[in-house]
Every structure is written in C-alpha cells, then in structure tokens.
C-alpha cells in the first residue's frame, strides 16, 4: 500500500456527521438567588452526532435527569446553551420548545411509555397527528416505524396485550417516527430481563446506526457499553474519563 493510501484512512478525517444535540457549558441552577441554590448541572459540554449513541452514567443526584431534560427541551439552562437539531433552546418560548420537541425529539422511559387506551399503531401515530400530519400518512409512517423495530405484527394490539419488551419496541418506534432523529432514553431496559433488555438495546443501536442520534441515561454498565461513548456525571459535572472510553 502506498503512503497516500494510508494517509487517507477514514480515522484521520474529522467527524462530518451532523450534530443533532449539543450542550455548550450548560448549567441548570434550581432556586437561583435563594439562600441555597442547587446546581443540578454545572457547565456540561457534550455533542451527539447522527449515528452516535452516547451513554450517561452517574450516581443518583449527579444530574443525569437534568441533562436529559435540557437535551429534550423540557427545561432550559440557566447559563450556557443547548442546541437541538440546529435550534438553540435557551431563548425559546414554552410553546416553541414544545414544537421543537414534537418535531425533533423522542423519549423512551423505563415504563409508562404507551397510552393504554390506544393500539400500538395509534400510539406511534399520536405524535405525528399532533404535528398536523393526516391520519392516512400517520398510519403509513407508524407501520414503517413498527416494521423497523420488528413488531409490525403488533399494529392493532393494545399495550396490555404486549410483553414489556414489545412495549419498549413500540416506544422506540414512537420516539423515532417521522422526521424525529434524536432519541432520549432513560433506563429503557430497567424492568426487563437480560435477554429482552439486550434485544431492546439492539433495536435502539440499530435505529441510531440507521441515522438517528441517541442519548442514553443508565446506571447499568452493560447497557452503557452499547454506546459509542460513555460520559460520567458527578455533582452536576462531567467527570473526566479515560480517552479509551471512546470506542467506535
């Protein structure tokens, strides 16, 4: 092999994948100006690109949930900035943030993901119909989203007729239906057995690989290991981790 060929190895190129989420020195202080302000998040900088899954680990109270709330535009930083899908949320109104969330962000929680009175399809269609997409189109998108997570056959089933693992697949489908490309997952495998949890991580990973971006909060190192990077939080700060913790 020539020297030229070696010098153009992909590893040497800068990462040109679009950044879907970026936190720039983001901080969130609760009770600012009071006697005991609580610094829930203290100057965190983080980027998540398309095709990337980033895991956030840390003990209870370390700021994981605050980070996720900021990333999803549920809350705004008291200083610094959070940019979701190219839009800075710092100056947005509550309404504008809600619109941004619907357009760009999907959530998967440990449980209570699905509306019990709606079928799988209707659950997945819901955010799209709220976006103003017509029912016919929303159904098509729901079918495709369910197919991508391997549960197209659950289309007309209600959550109570599904296993926990099936419900989480539907939740992932709903999180990434339509144009949404940022999925925020909070202990998505929490209540599931090892094999089912692994299947959920596989689905999440595959969806990210196909062009989404994911931020995964977990205390489970086994699930964090599915991520490209693992960041640690302690007392609201990102704790320096060894360079080796980035594997992709």
């Amino acid at each position: 092999m020539s020297v030229e060929a070696r010098s153009t190895e992909p590893a040497a190129l800068p990462d040109r994948r679009p950044v879907l989420l970026s936190l720039n020195d983001a901080a969130r202080v609760h009770g600012e100006g009071t006697a005991v302000p609580v610094r829930a998040l203290n100057g965190v900088s983080l980027e998540v690109r398309v095709g990337e899954l980033v895991a956030v680990m840390g003990p209870s109270g370390s700021g994981k949930s605050t980070l996720l709330h900021l990333a999803g535009g549920l809350d705004t930083p008291t200083s610094g900035d959070v940019v979701v899908d190219g839009v800075s949320i710092a100056g947005l109104s509550v309404k504008a943030r809600a619109a941004l969330r619907r357009r760009s962000v999907g959530y998967v929680f440990q449980d209570l993901n699905l509306v019990p009175a709606l079928t799988a399809a209707e659950n997945v269609m819901l955010p799209r119909e709220l976006d103003g997409v017509g029912t016919r189109q929303a159904r098509l998108e729901a079918r495709e989203a369910l197919r991508e997570v391997g549960v197209e056959d659950l289309f007309d089933r209600f959550p109570e007729e599904m296993s926990g693992g099936q419900q989480q697949r539907v939740a992932i489908a709903r999180a990434l239906v339509g144009p949404r490309r940022l999925v925020l997952a909070d202990e998505p495998t929490g209540a599931l057995d090892s094999l089912t949890g692994e299947a959920i991580m596989k689905v999440l990973r595959a969806r990210v690989d196909e062009g989404a971006a994911g931020l995964l909060v977990t205390h489970d190192a086994q699930h964090a290991a599915w991520a490209d990077r693992v960041v640690f939080l302690r007392d609201g700060k990102m704790v320096e981790s060894a360079a080796g913790s980035r594997i992709s």
């Binding site: 290991a225 693992v230 981790s241 080796g244 913790s245």
Partner: peptide, 20 residues
C-alpha cells in the same frame, strides 16, 4: 477507581461490540 472503571468499561464496550 476512576482509571479502573474507565478501563473496565472500555473492555465491556469491546465485548459488547463483538457480541453485536
């Protein structure tokens, strides 16, 4: 502890990647 944990996670990522 932190150095060890980073190493343990790095190894864990490697195993997980292989499993995938």
């Amino acid at each position: 502890i932190h150095r060890q944990k980073a190493e343990t996670l790095r190894v864990l990522q490697g195993y997980t990647k292989e499993k995938r």
